[in-house]
Design a protein around this nucleic acid. Structure first.
Lengths: 341, 341
DNA sequence: CCATGGTATGTAAACCTTTACATAACCTGT
DNA sequence: ACAGGTTATGTAAAGGTTTACATACCATGG
């Protein structure tokens, strides 16, 4: 039963009194084997506790049953739920997931490239907006890949994420409906596709309401708490204050709220703030943060499904899958002060 | 250069004009090969871009270079930072990490057991307090394993985590120093070793201060937000109110704070609250939560180092590594109301 | 100059699968 | 009764590596 070395296909074959080929077929293409034989084999498998050796199988097949997931930062609060979606979907198709994080270090990226080259992963899920393989990115021969959470810059890689434009539009529409006209956009970025799309949604909303764009209240940022805090400082120093802060993500919004509170202002009495992502702590902020929810588990699920499709078909059925973002109304938005008088 | 199929050891051997055995040796035991030869081989490797096929290597060696990390819930805010520590340490020793989550589903656990049996992982890191393999747990032949974050119940598995007793002691000592005498302990559990250890720290602190134990203010819980909220309700219904709530973890503390706020109380004016873990949102609560910090990255690093040691030596050098917990003082603790009058 | 031993390399088996090809048995229709 | 086809099974090669064992060479000491 529980021998020291695991049973091989040969053990099963001997007990079932068939050849190893038949055992292999009974497992992977059962319809090609007689009922009676299949029964014998199954019994032998039960007796021996046989599990096929994944190494040998992968070696023979020339591809592994692992998917590599590369993220710049595993600690990102958005990461874990997407990971759950990825994992569930992968597992139910017999794949396992392997995780790697780069910390935006090209050296680290190269290690993963080696990893891929040594056939250890059949596919790649990228959390990073750019390929993390440094200067070798261009020449790299990548396995089927899917970007997730953030579109991948250097083209060709299918992407599954939220509809950033539509999401941003919902946020800005809410602010406009509350009566805001001077709405700042915090966290613009030329290098992060998701962020520039959110800005597009912001501007579309402004346009639809006939509000002119004011570039003085569009501030750059990198999506960190610190960048949000900094933006507030800049706005106060330049004395170009909006009545509402629409932030490119929740982290930025948190930074903005901290900056505002530090200066003694009340949210949403004095200023309204919106985020994007709905990270776990959004609900615990004071006030709780009105934001756009990313359907994270669904994103993971769809991305993995798409990747697995690529692995079998070879042809990408669609290049972008955009999921519907939901507006989550909490307590960080109110009418601007002047309207409440 | 960038051919369609990856270079094999044979390609390298041909170009370097040596046998494949020599190539293998040049890579893994360079001291056994002449300088001149090693040079030739290295050049050939550079030319071909060869990477050793991990599948073939693992098959031959009979063990993989992957470590399986099993957690009940990847979404746990404690998870990601430990994961970072694990990943860094593993990577730097040529191992990759594979993640799996069980959602406390025995079926799922069994799949991972199969996984281990098929030789896909050389070692196991367990985030769960109990072996997640259902009734097969007893007979299961596990690879070298290390428990992390929470001691593993059914013995024999080394554990790396924070010193729960010492940590809890720091929290209770703080409360006592502030003048509290009626300190509730929320989240006691017979099935979670970490939690019962925290209770031991709590009681030790009480003892040291000469305060009697009052079991009416020790409440069970499972570490969820909901369990914290529920505990508050119970206490109010039974009318056995403490002046401070010492919670078994931050999630519970969050629940307690919600429960208290819902009833209109102010923290820390009316009641003090402490947590344990220092999850990311602890700092964003209102008031920010005084808690005990888990050195998460360090835990991950030590756990993986220990596991790798097991893999090479075979003998566990120590059965528990307890890291020093730090008290993080924020704003959820104050002197009890009666003292402030 | 030879025996001895050390060092560097090569040969070939083994790790466990999957699958193309070969074989054998059986059935069908004439 | 037999050609031809279908179905079930077996044989053996291949996938890329590591390593025990064999071999060849060279140096050393007598």
């Amino acid at each position: 039963m529980s021998n020291s070395t695991p049973a091989t296909i040969e053990d099963v074959a001997r007990i079932a009194n068939v050849s190893i080929a038949t055992v292999s077929r009974a497992i992977h293409t059962p319809e090609k084997v007689a009922n009676s034989t299949r029964l014998k084999v199954n019994q032998a498998i039960a007796v021996t506790g046989y599990t096929t050796n994944a190494m040998a199988r992968s070696l023979r097949l020339g591809r592994s049953n692992m998917i590599l997931v590369v993220a710049p930062d595993i600690g990102d609060p958005n990461f874990s739920n997407i990971l759950i979606g990825l994992e569930n979907e992968a597992r139910s198709h017999g794949y396992g997931i392997l995780i790697g994080h780069t910390q935006n270090d090209a050296q680290r990226g190269l290690e993963y490239l080696k990893f891929l080259n040594s056939n250890q992963a059949a596919g790649l899920i990228l959390f990073t907006g750019i390929l993390p393989f440094g200067h070798q990115t261009m020449t790299a021969r990548l396995p089927p890949s899917v970007g997730v959470f953030e579109p991948v810059f250097n083209g060709g890689i299918p992407y599954v994420g939220v509809d950033d434009i539509a999401g941003a539009r919902k946020a800005v529409d809410l602010l406009i409906a509350e009566g805001h006209r001077k709405i700042a956009f915090i966290g613009d970025s030329r290098t992060r596709l998701a962020y520039s799309r959110r800005r597009m949604g912001y501007e579309a909303g402004l346009d639809a309401a006939g509000i002119g764009h004011d570039v003085r209240i569009v501030l750059d940022g990198d999506g960190t708490i610190e960048s949000g805090r900094l933006a507030v400082e800049q706005l106060f120093m330049r004395d170009t204050l909006p009545t509402a802060f629409m932030c490119v993500n929740d982290q930025t919004a948190i930074g903005v709220m901290i900056g505002l509170k530090t200066r003694g202002y009340d949210i949403p009495e004095d200023f309204s703030v919106t985020g994007f992502d709905d990270v776990p702590q959004a609900v615990f902020m004071t006030p709780s943060l009105t934001t756009i929810r990313q359907p994270r588990t669904a994103i993971g699920k769809h991305a993995m499904a798409l990747l697995l499709e690529l692995l079998s078909d070879g042809e990408p059925p669609e290049t972008e899958i955009l999921l519907r973002p939901d507006l989550v109304v909490r307590n960080s938005v109110a009418a601007p002060a002047r309207l409440r008088r």
